[in-house]
């Protein structure tokens, strides 16, 4: 449960197999960011550039799970966050990256790196620095337990604001007509 005393809540955010559009939308709450920052402080997040998250009240994740690194980050968030939120279509459903799910990964890699007409002397990258792709893209809830979902591609700034204020005030978040949408 969220502590509703005035202690600032720790919030971590990240983008996995997403496009950062949801983070852009978070910034779309505009001047309400100031009000938000009265109540929360960011831990690991692209906004702080903190690389690993410590214990947090809320973790907000954009994007689905498409590679090994996504899995590590998701596990880190689940291990550290009391409440984990899937934000946006990709986190909730797999989204655009999951459109490859009915294709064989091997054929995808071959097409992109070896046989595409624009490729010369191609090879499938095998640098250990690069995370390996999973054979299928998964929404977050298929890999760890997720507590809340904010659909939308991206969810509007208003929807994110409504959701976060509900959560921070200790109410079960409810978006209602106009704020809940899947596109």
């Amino acid at each position: 449960m969220i502590d509703v005393t005035r202690r600032k809540l720790k919030v971590a955010t990240t983008s996995l197999a997403g496009c950062f559009g949801c983070h852009m939308s978070l910034l779309d709450i505009d001047e309400r960011l100031f009000a938000l920052l009265e109540r929360i402080e960011f831990d690991r997040s692209p906004l702080t550039d903190i690389k690993h998250c410590g214990p947090c009240d809320i973790g907000i994740i954009e994007g689905g799970i498409c590679n090994a690194e996504n899995v590590h980050v998701l596990h880190e968030f689940r291990a550290n966050c009391k409440i984990l939120v899937a934000m946006g279509a990709c986190a909730v459903t797999g989204g655009l990256p999951a459109q490859r799910n009915h294709l064989d990964l091997g054929l995808c890699l071959q097409e992109v790196y070896l046989t595409d007409p624009g490729v010369a002397h191609g090879m499938i990258p095998n640098d250990p620095e690069l995370p390996l792709p999973l054979d299928k893209v998964h929404p977050l809830h298929e890999v760890v337990k997720i507590d809340y979902f904010i659909p939308g591609c991206p969810p509007s700034g208003d929807a994110i604001w409504k959701f976060l204020t509900d959560l921070i005030e200790g109410r079960t978040p409810k978006l209602g007509h106009g704020l809940i949408h899947y596109d």
């Binding site: 797999g94 659909p151 007509h177």
Partner: peptide
């Protein structure tokens, strides 16, 4: 989609069959 909105469906919840 509209039914999902009206009923407050935030996620498909189940494993997607793709």
């Amino acid at each position: 989609q509209a039914l999902g909105y009206d009923l407050g469906v935030m996620t498909a919840g189940f494993r997607h069959l793709f």
